[in-house]
Design a protein around this nucleic acid. Structure first.
Length: 424
RNA sequence: GGCGCCUUGGCCGAGUGGUUAGGCACAGGUCUGCAAAACCUGGUACACCGGUUCGACUCCGGUAGGCGCCUCCA
């Protein structure tokens, strides 16, 4: 198994099974219901990866954090941010549970990891990688020569948007922020009341659950800079190996523009699930390669639905021993190429093989062919009899009755000569 | 302005220095009382301009268009 690593820009081989493979994936900031793009980046990809690696014999541990301390939360709920974070965490769990992919092994929150974050900040201060100013603590970017390597940013080309006179260097970033009026949550620290900056939480949580060196760190491409760059600066300054491989997924877009809350073109995961159902939505994610942008639209979802219907028809027909599992493994072992995997699966007719393949993606349910109610089967039998006596008017009337009940009757060669299929 | 990515037939979407990707849709056909499903057939597509090469969609350079990031967006 090999995957593309942003840091080196190359395909990197994973160690042979059983690993173990520690995976840290950047999770959501909880201040409202997550949207479809979030779902892909924080839930679907890490859990699919986990499922595939485990199929391949790896021991995995997937950590997906929950960011419950953030400016957005304070802004969204002045005076009661803790309640909002708590509510939004619950929504997040509810919505992503509907995807039916299971849950990460650990889902730590930033708030519960504050002591570990403070400890890391103290180490950075002791090492000269950070400095305190008026209750804030900043990371000294100039102290870390590797800064900018992940995102291939030139330090001297970076610009500061809002000059902060407290910083030694405009590129420095906050590790700890002194409590400000209106911020209703805070923690005691050696630097007074305040709360951690954004980036330090991921260094703390990943190292707490995966150790100071682990295999994979993932997240949306938009997090590459500054978030992941800063995580590297924090952890590696302390001599920690940190993540060996960096996976950055492409963004979900709508008509070519990134789906984003602030643009207002986002569709909530809950709404998408209501509109398309979990199977079509998950299948849609399968149609694109994880590193490329994926366009969420009526047309692309409809194509996913039609393609999935084709696979359902395979399960409705007799199984044939056509299919080669090793071709699927080759596709997915090569940078988790799901479009290629689907192309392979399109040639298969072996129910058991297909069921296993879909099962990895949480889509084993499509193999379950729904049995028609007895009264509809009786109508279908009556129609067969009418056809037998060439009473086609009656046969068509019975077909209409079956269709009115939401089912479709198809004539087939094998017994009993017809097949009832729920219309989708 | 800086950094990076992308541009494949109506649509989605892999991939490779020379061999049919695959799917969706569409058209014709087989089957069927009809229909649906299934199966068969039907498109030499790789933004543009140069270069390297025996040969480029695939490598290099440039142009155009699109996208992402450039201090708290997954």
């Amino acid at each position: 198994m090999r995957v593309h690593d942003t840091y080196s820009g190359k395909l990197v081989e994973l160690p042979p099974p059983p690993g173990p493979v520690g995976i840290y994936w950047c999770g959501p900031t909880v201040y409202r219901r997550i949207h479809v793009g979030n779902a892909l980046a924080v839930t679907v990809l890490p859990l699919w990866l986990k499922r595939w690696l485990e199929h391949r014999g790896y021991e995995t541990k997937v950590v997906v954090n929950i960011t419950d301390i953030n400016d957005k939360i304070y802004d969204a709920a002045p005076g009661h941010s803790a309640e909002l974070a708590s509510d939004a965490t619950r929504w997040y769990i509810e919505d992503t549970d509907r995807l039916g992919l299971g849950r990460p092994d650990v889902e730590p929150t930033a708030a519960e990891t504050v002591p570990e974050q403070i400890a890391l900040i103290e180490q950075l201060l002791a090492g000269g990688f950070a400095y305190e100013v008026e209750g804030d603590v900043y990371y000294r970017v100039a102290s870390f020569p590797e800064y900018g390597r992940l995102s291939r940013q030139r330090l001297d080309a970076m610009e500061e948007q809002e000059p902060n006179p407290l910083k030694e260097d405009p590129r420095d970033f906050a590790l700890w922020k002194a409590n400000k009026p209106g911020e209703d949550t805070w923690w005691e620290s050696p630097w007074g009341k305040g709360r951690p900056g954004w980036h330090i939480e991921c260094s703390a949580m990943s190292e707490k659950y995966l150790g100071t060196s682990f295999e994979i760190h993932g997240g949306g491409l938009d997090l590459k800079f500054p978030h992941h760059e800063n995580e590297i600066a924090q952890s590696r300054a302390l001599g920690h190996g940190f993540a060996r491989i960096w996976m950055h997924n492409g963004m979900l877009s709508m008509r070519g523009t990134e789906m984003h809350k602030s643009i207002g073109n986002d569709v909530s995961l809950a709404d998408a699930l209501d509109r398309w159902g979990r199977e079509t939505l998950l299948f849609f994610f399968l149609t694109g390669h994880w590193r490329k942008p994926l366009d969420y639209s009526e047309e692309t979802l409809e194509q996913a639905r039609a393609q999935l219907e084709g696979f359902r028809n395979v399960f409705r027909s007799p199984s044939e021993p056509v299919g080669d599992w090793s071709e699927l493994e080759a596709a997915l072992d090569d940078d988790f190429n799901t479009p290629e995997a689907l192309a392979v699966m399109h040639g298969w007719r072996d129910h058991e093989l297909l069921r296993r393949a879909f099962g990895i993606f949480g889509l084993g349910s499509i193999a379950e062919v729904e049995e028609a109610p007895a009264e509809l089967a009786a109508l279908a039998e009556a129609r067969m009899a009418a056809r037998g006596s060439k009473d086609f008017a009656e046969a068509d009337r019975l077909r209409g009755e079956i269709e009115a009940a939401g089912w479709e009757v198809r004539d087939v060669a094998e017994a009993p000569g017809y097949r009832l299929v729920r219309r989708s």
